[in-house]
């Protein structure tokens, strides 16, 4: 690990004032320190934002939910209002990593963490995302890579909470020296075709200061499938939000994780559910539609049947129906 300066910021202003082009904000440090130890990141300065007060609260009112960026995944998992009204979010947080990691990991850090692609994470490969010219996953070991938008860079976005947050129309409040802006999370995450070197629109020196989720009557559900349950990354995960009118769905929102370099909105699937009854058949049609345009690589076509199963099951569960399955 390289030598670096350490700055403790006590306020957002101080954090913004301390940051230089070569520095990184440090929240829980779970991802950042791993990147540094593995020689993938070498910031010359760490600006510790962990001590800034007031950014570690969850508040709820009739407009919705406001989550401070230093809220931990454990807080999300355990918060009664989140559990009750934003079930998919609580569920997603609870399935991330281990209890120890969830106690350290923050919402801001989780959304901004870098991808886990093993080529990106290995010092042995200078891949496109790191400034090289090649995506080694294209013709390499791509079992765990994207099945959509995977031709420039085949990473999947790592954030588990981003999946329900996008499905719930969550927004990020971003603060820079020049002021604040609010961006829908759906636009916050970007495609490698836009800029392969990053996964979101955040400019250097910009801080996420809140995540806002609008209030909604929609019913939500989330499901993550890994190869094992204990601290494994998802092969595939899905968040479903269904606004219901009686037994009909008036608006569906279906977002896939583990599918693309960003939380992937399955619009074709949503279209199958909008203004229709939620049944085994409509759920299946939606799940199949979600996968219709997948472009798997050599070794990850197996994700397609998995998505077909978990999207269907999660739609049914969001609608309050049962769906049998074995957890992993």
């Amino acid at each position: 690990m390289n030598r670096f300066d350490w700055v403790n910021a006590n306020s957002v202003d101080q954090a913004l004032a301390s940051v230089t082009d070569e520095s990184s904000f440090k929240a829980g440090g779970v991802d950042l320190l791993d990147l540094m130890k593995d020689g993938i990141a070498s910031p010359s300065r760490l600006v510790n934002i962990r001590q800034i007060s007031g950014l570690d609260q969850i508040s709820e009112d009739d407009k919705g939910l406001r989550i401070g960026p230093l809220v931990t995944l454990t807080q999300i998992e355990e918060h009664p209002a989140v559990q009750k009204t934003y079930a998919a979010l609580s569920e997603a947080a609870s399935r991330i990593a281990t209890p120890q990691i969830r106690n350290m990991a923050t919402v801001g850090g989780n959304l901004v963490q870098r991808p886990r692609c093993w080529y990106f994470r290995s010092e042995d490969f200078h891949c496109r995302k790191k400034g090289g010219t090649h995506c080694f996953a294209q013709d390499g070991e791509n079992d765990y890579h994207a099945i959509f938008d995977n031709r420039v860079c085949a990473i999947i976005h790592p954030s588990g909470i981003a999946v329900p947050l996008v499905a719930m129309n969550g927004r990020a409040e971003i603060t820079a020296k020049k002021g604040k802006r609010e961006v829908a999370l759906e636009e916050f995450f970007t495609s490698p075709t836009h800029d392969v070197h990053r996964e979101n629109i955040l400019e250097p020196g910009e801080l996420i200061t809140a995540i806002v989720v609008p209030a909604s009557e929609a019913r939500t559900a989330y499901y993550k499938q890994g190869e094992k349950e204990s601290f494994d990354w998802p092969i595939a995960d899905v968040a479903v939000s269904l606004a219901m009118q009686g037994s009909r769905c008036s608006k569906a929102s279906i977002v896939l994780g583990g599918a693309a370099p960003y939380p992937y909105r399955a619009k074709a699937a949503e279209a199958k559910l909008n203004n229709s009854e939620i049944t085994e058949d409509s759920a299946r049609a939606a799940a199949d539609a979600a996968m219709a345009n997948a472009t798997p690589l050599e070794k990850n076509a197996y994700k397609i049947p998995i998505f077909e199963a978990i999207v269907r099951r999660t739609i049914l569960r969001a609608a309050g129906m049962k769906a049998e399955g074995v957890a992993a």
Binding site: Q225, Y302, P305, I306, A309, I310, G325, V326, A327, A328
Partner: peptide, 11 residues
């Protein structure tokens, strides 16, 4: 064992 034949998960 339990096998989820739709997702391939074996427990």
């Amino acid at each position: 064992v339990a096998v989820d034949t739709e997702t391939g998960v074996i427990k």
